[in-house]
Computed example of a mutant assay.
Amino acid sequence: MESTVVVTRTRVIHPVHAAVLGGVFPLFLGALLADYAYWSTYEIQWSNFAAWLLVGAMVMTTLALLAGIVGLVRGSRQLPYVIVLVVTWLVGFFDSLHHARDAWAIMPGALVMTVIATLLAFVATWIGFSTLRAGDVR
């Protein structure tokens, strides 16, 4: 009697990729909360906080996007994840440009773009952690 061994290859997320992806959503959420605080108080420092949190979110999104592209090149099937990250990066980039304006001129556009970027970051994080597995964990 012969026995055959079936080897299933799981898509493994690299720990650095997971750490970077885990930092994307909280930074966009922090920028959203700072934008909301600025919208409700018009204290200019909240606008500065939001701009710096967006810079951090863009750095993390860029690193996660690079890791996702490397994963695509290596043969994993994570195209929807990479597409959502690209859209998140684009919205975050234009949101950062909008935040570079005068603090009095950024509302309400900055708040709307930050809400969209935060929702996209949430979707990207959800897709990334639900489809990419670490080892045999299900």
Rank of each mutant, 00 (worst) to 15 (best):
V137P: 14
V59W: 06
L29Y: 05
P80M: 03
W104R: 12
A103E: 07
T125D: 07
D136E: 14
G56C: 00
E2G: 07
G128C: 05
A117F: 02
V112G: 00
V55Y: 04
L66C: 09
G22S: 10
R133L: 10
V16P: 07
D136N: 15
A103R: 11
Q78Y: 10
L53W: 13
L32F: 11
E2W: 10
W52V: 11
V70G: 06
V70E: 05
F129M: 15
T131R: 12
H98G: 01
R77D: 08
A31F: 01
S40K: 07
S130E: 06
N48G: 14
N48L: 15
L54H: 05
A57I: 00
L120Y: 00
T131L: 11
G71F: 01
Q78C: 11
I106Q: 03
R133D: 09
V73H: 03
V137M: 14
L85H: 11
A110K: 07
A124T: 09
T41S: 05
G128H: 04
F49W: 07
R9K: 15
W126S: 11
T41C: 01
A134R: 15
T88G: 01
I127R: 13
A50P: 11
V16A: 09
A103W: 10
T4Q: 15
A18T: 13
I83R: 05
H17T: 03
M107L: 11
L79K: 07
A19W: 10
L32M: 08
M1K: 10
G68R: 02
A67F: 15
V87Q: 03
I69G: 04
A110I: 03
L65H: 13
G68V: 00
H99T: 07
G135F: 12
L66Q: 13
L54R: 05
A121L: 03
D102I: 06
L90K: 08
V86W: 03
Q45G: 02
T62V: 15
V123I: 15
G22N: 08
I116V: 14
I44V: 12
Q45C: 02
G30L: 07
M60T: 12
T114K: 00
R138I: 10
G23A: 02
F129K: 14
A105Y: 09
V6R: 12
D95Q: 12
L54Q: 10
A37E: 01
V16M: 08
V82K: 05
L21Y: 02
L120F: 09
H17V: 01
T114Y: 08
V16R: 15
R77A: 06
A51W: 09
T131K: 15
M60W: 10
N48Y: 15
G68N: 05
G68K: 06
N48W: 14
T8P: 05
A51Y: 09
A100P: 07
L63P: 11
I13S: 12
A117C: 06
D102W: 04
R9Q: 15
S96D: 02
T125V: 09
V7G: 03
I13F: 14
G92Q: 00
R138D: 14
R11I: 09
I13L: 08
R77V: 08
Y36R: 12
